[in-house]
């Protein structure tokens, strides 16, 4: 009996390892690629974008991810859009970022919820329609780490607060790095009704628009994979002084905005 159990657990372990630890592309190849990009070809050349992610996610609820572009945004050649996908998340689509030549550089950093061992992939679309992909495999850590924010009351209390932060003094006519902090619980709607007394549907930030003096810098469609208190870092190019402005809307139809005066 004990022997049987040992064998069974050994087999179970093998099975689980094979399924979860496998650095595999199947979900992407079999479903996601077609779902998001139909039959368009996607290259993995390394001279357009790169993605940085920790190999082990220390906190599955908040995994820092950074996408860096290897070209400057010019009117002739620029990255128009970056789609971010987490293969094994319940909702693989994490975000879509739209850039303009005014972005300066199509870099973007954010924090993600990653439910299990998965590829995180960024697919850049150039202004001429070419698609280029960069990907990283992330091991979401186990234990009591659930992809949920820690202090829900604090998050609700701050709901809608936003902050801009700039690194140093702004420089005119060159890409400046800015950080946008949005306080929002970004609650997942994945509760199980068998165990609940109340069900909170998903409630999250779904659109972020950043402009400089009225011109779009970064426009993002975001989903539930973005961590609580969404945080984005991106570039913009001020020609002269002006207003950096963010407009954010969530799935309940709330809108929030924040303006930051930039004086290069």
């Amino acid at each position: 009996m004990k022997m049987v159990r040992v064998i069974v657990s050994f087999l179970a372990m093998f099975f689980v390892n094979a399924v979860s630890a496998g650095v595999d592309d199947t979900v992407w190849k079999n479903e996601l690629k077609t779902q998001f990009f139909a039959d368009r070809s996607i290259s993995e050349t390394e001279n357009i974008i790169a993605i940085e992610a920790p190999y082990r996610a220390e906190d599955a609820a908040l995994v820092p991810i950074r996408i860096t572009s290897k070209i400057n945004q010019t009117n002739d050649k620029y990255i128009k859009k970056i789609t971010l996908i987490v293969d094994k998340n319940p909702t693989p689509f994490a975000a879509e970022f739209n850039f303009t030549p005014l972005s300066g550089k199509a870099d973007v950093a954010m924090r993600l919820r990653i439910n299990s061992y998965s590829y995180v992939r960024a697919i850049a679309e150039m202004n001429d329609g070419q698609l280029i992909m960069a990907k990283k495999f992330v091991k979401a850590s186990g234990g009591c780490s659930a992809p949920i924010g820690a202090d829900l009351d604090a998050a609700m209390k701050r709901l809608g607060r936003m902050k801009f932060k700039l690194s140093g003094t702004a420089q005119s006519n060159e890409p400046n790095l800015a950080q946008l902090l949005i306080s929002h619980p970004n609650i997942t709607g994945m509760q199980m009704d068998q165990v609940t007394r109340f069900i909170r549907p998903a409630y999250y930030v779904e659109e972020v628009k950043v402009t400089f003096d009225g011109q779009p810098v970064l426009t993002a469609k975001t989903d539930i994979a973005i961590s609580a208190d969404p945080n984005f870092r991106f570039y913009f190019v001020p020609q002269s002084s002006g207003d950096l402005r963010a407009e954010v809307s969530d799935t309940d139809g709330n809108t929030f905005s924040q303006t930051y005066r930039v004086e290069p």
Binding site: N115, A146, P147, I148, I187, V195
Partner: peptide, 8 residues
Amino acid sequence: MQARGGFY
């Protein structure tokens, strides 16, 4: 429990 239970 409701928020994390399903995941656990």
